[in-house]
Design a protein around this nucleic acid. Structure first.
Lengths: 209, 209, 209, 209
DNA sequence: CATGAATGAGTGTTCATTCAT
DNA sequence: TATGAATGAACACTCATTCAT
């Protein structure tokens, strides 16, 4: 429902949830667009959702629990869409470029979630035990696989540890997107992707030197 | 109050304030280094400062009031130091380079304040009526003056509105510093200044094309 | 329902109840061994029993209702066992001695129930309308009958009101058991029974003086 | 104010406390006479005391904190009175007899506190870190000193460890008082003291055998 | 200048209970 | 017989703020 990617791939997950569950999640999302997580109260969420406070607690064990559920679902949607749009792409660097575009585009379209993901959540140690972090790890793992694959087939140089490459890649994307996310400014995903990839890929290619 | 800029010397502003006033401000600063503003409580500040809660309230009408007082003072110190270190520099671009370095260095040294300034405070509309914003405006005005001066003496091209130039200049600095500030990473001020100025100044010079 | 007292055999009462009913009661019992009644919640009971919360509510109108149902059943078991083990005993004092032993032994084996019975439940006026209290009354009545019988056949002096005798008898037992029950200490039933009976029976016998 | 002992010895401790502090303590005490601690709520205490809920929290950090403050003060009063009434008594056994009487009399007069002390509080592990427990320990220590003194001057046999003696002494008192405390029955302090001391002291005397 | 006492309005969370299916 | 969804009212605890002194 909250599908955001260009080319479909359905998920009907939402239909399995009771009405209250959905309404609460939607309420949180709409509130996050207006104010930051910490200043959103149980009462506000309940009122916005039109349900009882206790119900929220029953579905999501705590306020952070609710946040992470929403975040997790959002990330899972992202990952599904990413998988789907990676189909048919050949070459590790091409895949990475697609990923870069995909992520930048997401950051650009979803400032609210991105802000939470980029700032709010990282300071909380509970984050690293959350489902949210599981999704992030899956995403991270996927990138590493692609890099490994590129190294194996000779597309990417093998003298830099794959994890470093990943870190630089993700760091570059983040670096480019952070200001627009934080200051709610628009960003041209195509141009930004170009910038990131042009700079990095030359240095990554096997015959780079 | 106006510090004698000639001979540096730490400002004596503080001596005009009652003991409690100073202790409270110092308490907030030390707390900000440990936890974020929203989760700092009146009681904590009072306890850290060793004064009565009611006293804080008497001096600073609200928590945000206290924050802005501290921020304002901090910015004023920054501006004073900037004025001082701008002395004897000739050329608008040279001055701008100095400003860039000075600001980047500050962001780099003071993550706590920078984070508040860069993120926390801007979302609050009260900010734009605050003394903090006055300081920011003064700083902003100063840059505009330098740009105007550069245009007038032919150092800077005159076909771009000065305010645009200022916006790009400050945006570039911010852009470079934001990730380090947010993720508490170190940044090399010299290199960062070079990056910013190299990219911008070529495009700004009158005979640029 | 009325158990065939001849051949002991565990009561079949349970089979008349639906599965959920039994599971709930068992859940409460197992929880009572771990924590005190007031801090046990509906949800906990339901989860432990593996049934829906609403179901518990349907069977037992309130938490206290459930408690009393369990207590009642427990006491009925006690009474049945007592009846059975009283068979074949001749003499009122001998019967009373048996009762003393039986009750002390129970207190000693079942601290959880005993504590509830001895402390928790008595402060609640609803107790006196409960099925639990019915059982207690039946037990109490049975003792009175034995005392009456003893007076009639000349075994017990007739110058003390039978109800006083009963009160003293039960009070003595309680007095002896209370500390062990409350502080979860072990008690030797044989010795305790001796103490109680030695002291009381000399004073009770017709030719006592 | 809450002085309870026969012969004075003043404590004006209460006058040092603000009105709210006193009112809250008194409110808790009066509520404890009606219902058990767990079912007393913040709101009830506040309402009974006629003060704001937050004030209670400010003075006593938690509900248990409040309970222990009250209990502690009550015990300190007891200890003060005990010290005072022990003056001029010669002989260890005479002192112990006085202590027995004093404690039994207290249990008898203050069922509410006694019940809490004897039952409620011991199940809570926090109790052993509380000020309440400090007082209990002081009392306990005092008894040990008297026993030691008795052993040294030959009044008490030296073949039983003093700590055992203390344990038996306190256990006997507790055993005698527990039922009356729990069932809110009256107890004759003089007779109870006689019972306890008659039984124990014969066995304790040096030339006992 | 500084403080202790006091408060109103929330905070997230938990509970026993009800109802439609 | 059994359940999932939903709720009202309360829970202990916290907060920024005010006032008399």
């Amino acid at each position: 429902m909250a599908r955001t990617v260009e080319d479909v791939a359905p998920n009907d997950r939402s239909t399995h949830y009771p009405a209250g569950h959905i309404k609460v999640r939607e309420a949180l999302i709409s509130l996050l667009k207006v104010k930051d997580f910490n200043s959103i109260t149980w009462a506000e969420i309940a009122q916005t959702a039109g349900v009882n406070e206790a119900l929220i607690y029953k579905y999501f064990r705590s306020k952070r629990g609710l946040l992470h559920t929403v975040l997790h679902e959002y990330l899972e949607d992202f990952l599904e869409g990413l998988d789907y749009s990676l189909k048919g792409i050949k070459g590790s660097l091409n895949k990475l470029r697609k990923i870069a575009w995909y992520q930048i585009d997401l950051y650009n379209r979803e400032h609210v979630f991105s802000k939470i993901l980029l700032i709010e959540v990282r300071n909380n140690k509970a984050y690293f035990q959350s489902k949210t972090y599981d999704s992030v790890r899956r995403f991270s793992r996927r990138i590493l696989d692609i890099i490994d694959e590129g190294i194996q087939n000779g597309e990417i140089r093998d003298d830099i540890p794959p994890k470093h490459i990943r870190q630089i890649f993700l760091g570059a994307i983040e670096h480019v997107c952070l200001p627009s996310v934080i200051y709610d400014r628009d960003l041209a995903p195509d141009a930004a992707t170009e910038s990131v990839c042009n700079i990095l890929f030359d240095g990554l290619r096997k015959n780079a030197d």
